[in-house]
Each structure stands twice: as structure tokens, then as C-alpha cells.
């Protein structure tokens, strides 16, 4: 059997040996559970003595939104220091003189961080039993949301790792990663809405109606995690009448996340190679 990459093995060993990891799992579940139970409590307070089964979808939406928020918060935090932390600890140079390629170091670091995030995701699955208790949601929707979380996690981790490779200091890398992830989660939605309003205003001035959503708006809404997730959950979260794209919205989102992640990881591996320190990828 092929041996695990030593960096991955070391990262997993260090991460799971530390008392912080179980603490993070506990906190994560407490926050997520707190959201769901708090929501149920509020619903129950507004209509005591019974709980509407139709509310299970709302619980699921709240739970998923909370999960997305936590992922956007946890993943950059876990990944933004993986390379810069090695640099700050003065262990990176020695690692780079071993037979491990820079790309394998980047990938191992990322896989280790993603493994821990995946653990958080899977540990939270029992919370979804609250939803099943009352029915109202298809299992395929839950699987869809889980897949959505996994590809989102991949992208956020790739962003964190590449910032960590590019910036020398973990502080700068962390702030930049959070900034980029915030733009993806919130900014793309706002930008999409803003551009859509501009188009609509133009159409109104020309006394016409928009026949289809402009391409750029469609692209932004198909890559905005909040809007994509709400659509997976069956909510109407779009700007305008929509337009035909090459892929369904979830396909656009998944492909964008995966392609961007792969490009960021390849670039990080290239950038980490000491022989490329002062070279530009494109001249």
C-alpha cells in the first residue's frame, strides 16, 4: 500500500494530537446546534404547543446558512497560515531541501486542513436529523448541500493556501484570505444585484423590459455561494428571468470552484519553488 505523504501524516498527527482540535469540533457543533435549537425555540414561542412540520425546511435553511458562514470563517483560518507559518517557524527552508516537491507540500497541507474541515462537516450531519424528524426535504437536497459545502471548502482552502504561499506573514495572509472569501460570499451577490439594477435602469430608460438576465449577472449569481445554496434548497434566489448558460447553476458553481482551486494550488506549488522566487509566471 502506498504510504501517506509525510507532510500530510505529520500535519494530521500534529493537528489531532493537539487539544485545540476537539475543542474546535465541540465549539463548531455548539454554535451550529445553538442556531438550530434557537430557531426551533423561536418558532415554538410564536406558536406554542405545536411545531409545524413545514418549518423543517426553514430549519434546514438556517442550519445550512450557519454552516456556510462557519465554513467561510473556519477554512481560511485553518489554511491561511499553513505555508507562511512554516516560514515564520523557520522550518520551510529545510522542508524545501528534502525530496518533497513544492506542489506535494502545498497539496498535503491543503488536504490536511480540508480533512479537518470535512470532519467538522460530517460531525454536524446528525444535526440534520432534526430536519428528517419532521420531513419536508428530499435526501437528494441534503446530498446536494453536502456536495456544495465540499466544493466551497475546496475553494476557500485553496484561497487560504495560496495567500499563505504568496504572503510572508500569516497575519497578512489571513486578512487577505478572509477578504477574498467575504467578497465571494457577499460581494459577488451585491455586485450581481448592483449590475442587474444598472441594466434594468437602462431598460426602463429605453422603455423595454429585460428579456433575460445579463450574462455577467447570471455568472455572478451562479457563483455566489449564498444564492446557489438557496437555489439548491428550492428557494427563488435569482436576479431577473434568468438565461441559458452552458451548465445548470450548480454545475457552473462546482466547475468554477474546482477549476479555480486547481489553478490556485498549481500556482502555489510554482510559487513555493525557491527557484521561482523572483520570477513572474507571466511576463
Amino acid at each position: 500500500m502506498r504510504e501517506l505523504n509525510p507532510v500530510l501524516l505529520k500535519e494530521l498527527r500534529q493537528r489531532f494530537r493537539s487539544y485545540r482540535s476537539p475543542l474546535v469540533v465541540v465549539l463548531y457543533l455548539m454554535v451550529l446546534g445553538g442556531f438550530s435549537l434557537g430557531f426551533i425555540y423561536l418558532r415554538w414561542r410564536s406558536a406554542p404547543a405545536f411545531f409545524q412540520p413545514g418549518s423543517s425546511k426553514e430549519i434546514f435553511t438556517v442550519l445550512s446558512m450557519a454552516q456556510l458562514g462557519l465554513l467561510a470563517f473556519v477554512v481560511p483560518g485553518l489554511t491561511a497560515g499553513v505555508i507562511s507559518g512554516e516560514r515564520e517557524r523557520q522550518t520551510l527552508n529545510v522542508l524545501l531541501t528534502t525530496e518533497l516537491s513544492p506542489l506535494s507540500i502545498v497539496v498535503s497541507k491543503m488536504v490536511a486542513a480540508c480533512s479537518f474541515t470535512a470532519l467538522l462537516l460530517f460531525a454536524s450531519l446528525p444535526l440534520y436529523s432534526l430536519v428528517f424528524m419532521y420531513g419536508g426535504l428530499a435526501p437528494v437536497q441534503i446530498l446536494g448541500v453536502l456536495a456544495f459545502f465540499l466544493v466551497s471548502m475546496l475553494l476557500y482552502a485553496a484561497i487560504g493556501v495560496s495567500c499563505s504561499t504568496y504572503f510572508k506573514r500569516t497575519g497578512v495572509s489571513t486578512v487577505t484570505s478572509y477578504g477574498i472569501v467575504f467578497f465571494l460570499v457577499v460581494g459577488t451577490g451585491f455586485l450581481g444585484g448592483f449590475i442587474y439594477e444598472l441594466y434594468q435602469h437602462q431598460a426602463r430608460m429605453a422603455m423595454t423590459n429585460l428579456q433575460e438576465t445579463p450574462f455577467i449577472v447570471q455568472l455572478l449569481q451562479d457563483t455566489n455561494p449564498v444564492m446557489v445554496m438557496l437555489r439548491i434548497l428550492g428557494e427563488q434566489a435569482t436576479f431577473g428571468p434568468g438565461r441559458d448558460m452552458w451548465l445548470p447553476y450548480w454545475g457552473t458553481y462546482a466547475v468554477t470552484c474546482i477549476v479555480l482551486s486547481v489553478l490556485l494550488i498549481l500556482w502555489s506549488g510554482w510559487k513555493l519553488n525557491p527557484m521561482n522566487h523572483n520570477r513572474k509566471l507571466f511576463r
Binding site: 505529520k10 498527527r13 500534529q14 494530537r17 493537539s18 517557524r89 523557520q90 522550518t91 527552508n93 529545510v94 531541501t97
Partner: peptide
């Protein structure tokens, strides 16, 4: 290679 300044990993 042994650099002039180097760190070690915690928890190993």
C-alpha cells in the same frame, strides 16, 4: 543542509 536559523515542529 542545516540553516543558521531554524525551527522545529511542536507536538512531535
Amino acid at each position: 543542509y542545516m540553516p543558521d536559523f531554524f525551527g522545529v515542529y511542536d507536538g512531535l
